[in-house]
Nucleic acid binder design. Structure first.
Length: 355
DNA sequence: AACTCGGGGGC
DNA sequence: GCCCCAGAGTT
């Protein structure tokens, strides 16, 4: 009995064919070669390498008898060069110990150097239709969203959970097609950023869609800690005065004080920052940029705050609504985030730190 | 479980 | 700058 999700994926897959250069081959050697080349590699980058390798080494015997130098040279520019060394070594093992014939079960295949759980499952299912799910980055993402699973995918329990889930979904008679469908779906629809949920044939049964958690799936134990934010402060100076404001929203540093802030989704250069500050009326028509302080960083439990501070002198006539005008030497009496406190101390301001 | 291995593209 | 990419090997 076929799982409905597998049926949907396979139907979608058949309606949206993807031209992958290695899919014209169905022999284990070509599949193995393509899978090694494509590990942690984008299709656009790896395709030409596959064709070059297939051209230079049409069979496992050609690869095995080639000098390692030649294999490395063909690999040049692809990265992770141990893949090339293991590829060559495994070709020689296959010729010497296996008469050039691939073993047919995942456990046997995974004994070969350079082949881990994913690649073993991919070869076994694509070449021999062995019923096992090939769990790559796409599969982790798609499955974690469909079932709204927050188990970290980079934990041993997570790997086990997703492997078993994948195995339970696939149609044993069509494991290769299922695996291909799952990966293509992840690459084209259920993408890491801005997934195409509006065009998704599985939207109805996607738990993370209904729970609005697609942006935080899959969970990784490492990345859970350090989502970057980019804070750009404007240290405006009018003689001995400056402007500060209280952080009031339900966010980090609530009720602490700060300079006028522009938060951006990525690092911006000085010109762009000034442009945005003008748009928000943080600046008068005329001003003097005194200095840009950069390389300020604060690491929180789950965030890294990359901070820039633009130091600007403004004319006497300027005033900034919605912010408190304060004597620079007196701002130490207000609570500031550590990174701003540190900055002020470095500037010789606000010596009365009490944190 | 944590670290290391790369180059490229996206934002 | 950091994430992500048809992950795996070593410590």
């Amino acid at each position: 009995m076929n799982h409905p999700i597998a049926n949907h994926l396979i139907h979608w897959h058949e309606a949206h064919p993807r031209a992958l250069v290695w899919k014209q081959y169905s022999d284990a050697y070509s599949i193995w070669l393509s899978e090694i080349i494509m590990q942690q590699t984008r299709v656009e980058q790896g395709s030409a390498y596959f064709e070059a390798f297939k051209n230079a080494f049409p069979t496992v015997f050609d690869l095995a008898k080639a000098p390692l130098d030649e294999v490395i040279r063909l690999w040049e520019g692809l990265g992770y060069y141990s893949r090339a060394r293991n590829l060559h070594l495994t070709a020689q093992v296959l010729v010497k110990d296996y008469q050039g014939v691939f073993p047919k079960t995942p456990n046997e295949i995974q004994q070969l150097k350079g082949i881990g759980p994913y690649t073993a499952a991919a070869i076994a299912s694509f070449a021999f239709n062995y019923p096992i799910a090939a769990i790559d980055g796409n599969a982790y993402r798609v499955l974690s969203r469909l079932f709204d699973i927050d188990t970290p995918i980079d934990s041993s329990s997570g790997r086990k959970q997703f492997q078993e889930l994948g195995n339970s979904l696939l149609d044993p008679a069509k494991s290769g097609t299922f695996n291909q469908a799952l990966m293509n779906f992840g690459a084209l629809v259920c993408t890491p950023k801005k997934p195409k949920c509006n065009d998704c044939v599985l939207q109805q049964q996607c738990l993370s869609f209904s729970n609005q958690t697609t942006d935080s799936r899959p969970v990784k134990s490492k990345s859970l800690k350090k989502t970057p934010r980019y804070f750009n402060y404007f240290f405006l100076q009018q003689g001995k005065d400056t402007w500060i404001g209280e952080r009031k929203s339900a966010d980090i540093w609530q009720n602490l004080y700060e300079f006028p802030l522009i938060e951006t989704s990525r690092p911006l250069d000085l010109d762009s920052l000034v442009e945005q500050a003008q748009a928000k009326n943080f600046l008068p028509a005329e001003f003097t940029i005194k200095k840009l302080h950069t390389d300020l960083k604060q690491i929180l439990s789950h965030r890294i705050i990359y901070t820039k501070i633009v130091e600007i002198e403004v004319p006497k006539a300027f005033s900034l609504p919605h912010f408190q005008k304060t004597a620079i030497q007196a701002i130490g009496s207000q609570p500031f985030p550590r990174i701003l406190k540190k900055f002020l101390t470095q500037q010789g301001i606000s010596a009365n730190s009490n944190q």
